[in-house]
């Protein structure tokens, strides 16, 4: 169980980027954090990953406070962030430095196969398409077998078709072994396609505006009437969230 309690973060000591965020994510759940720019959603993810220390409150995984990066939590960044001087398979092996070479090789090969780019194992990152690069980044996060996988707007830099494929692919990965996923996005459709639950955020300071349960069966289709209805409601909530900020300002 991934939890936060009254979590807050300020970078300059005066204005809060994130304030009083309390949430819990059940094991095997996909939680989506939805919000516009400046709502602190990426900061929330960085706190969960242990890349930042909270200014107030706590984040914890299975009761252990998260104060530094841990092998139990993987993170897929917005950009692939592959090391340009390493081949795809060496990039995937980046997080496996302490394993014996044979085991490392096997696990890297398995991870590349899972994300569907086994044929690109020996390519340089500069030779990959955007979608392939992000798949390699997902393989790098998966190969260490973390209990929790965090995604920071992972498909925002690729074209629409690739994005749909990657969403489907990430859902298939989740179906396979039901890890806990936390996905940050600003895209309502992405939130509704992926999430079991959606936290709608509001900005300045970043706070949870409301919570939404998506009880549509998977796979979800964007033209399904229930989906369309839910999308309209989510959009209203998101408007209300930004309105709340505007009224407060």
């Amino acid at each position: 169980m991934l939890t936060t309690s009254h979590l807050g973060k300020s970078f300059d000591g005066t204005s809060m980027v994130l304030q009083d965020v309390s949430l819990s994510v059940a094991r095997g759940e996909i939680l989506v954090v939805l919000g516009g720019s400046g709502c602190g959603k990426s900061t929330l993810l960085r706190l969960l990953a242990g890349l930042e220390r909270p200014t107030s409150g706590t984040a914890a995984l299975d009761g252990e406070p998260i104060l530094a990066p841990s092998p139990k939590v993987g993170l897929v960044f917005q950009e692939p962030r592959l090391m340009p001087w390493l081949t795809v398979s060496d990039n995937v092996a980046f997080g496996l430095r302490d394993l014996p070479a044979a085991e490392r090789r096997d696990r890297v090969a398995a991870a590349l196969k899972r994300v569907g780019i086994a044929h690109r194992a020996n390519a340089w990152p500069s030779e990959l398409s955007g979608g392939q690069a992000q798949r390699a980044a997902i393989a790098r996060a998966l190969v260490t077998e973390p209990a929790v996988l965090l995604f920071d707007e992972p498909f925002s830099a690729v074209d629409a078709l690739t994005r749909a494929q990657l969403q489907e692919h990430v859902l298939a990965l989740w179906e396979a072994d039901r890890r806990t996923f936390v996905v940050v996005t600003h895209d309502i459709e992405e939130a509704l396609i992926m999430g079991d639950r959606i936290l709608v955020m509001r900005s300045h300071p970043g706070q949870i505006h409301c919570e939404l349960t998506v009880d549509l069966p998977r796979p979800r289709h964007v033209d399904d009437p229930d989906f369309v209805g839910l999308r309209r409601r989510t959009l209203e909530l998101l408007r209300a969230a930004s309105g709340a900020h505007r009224d407060a300002a």
């Binding site: 990953a49 890349l51 530094a68 990066p69 950009e79 962030r81 090391m83 980046f94 430095r97």
Partner: peptide, 12 residues
């Protein structure tokens, strides 16, 4: 800095 952060995630 973004690449350095990847190394931080893996506790280098």
């Amino acid at each position: 800095r973004k690449l350095v952060e990847v190394a931080r995630i893996y506790r280098y």
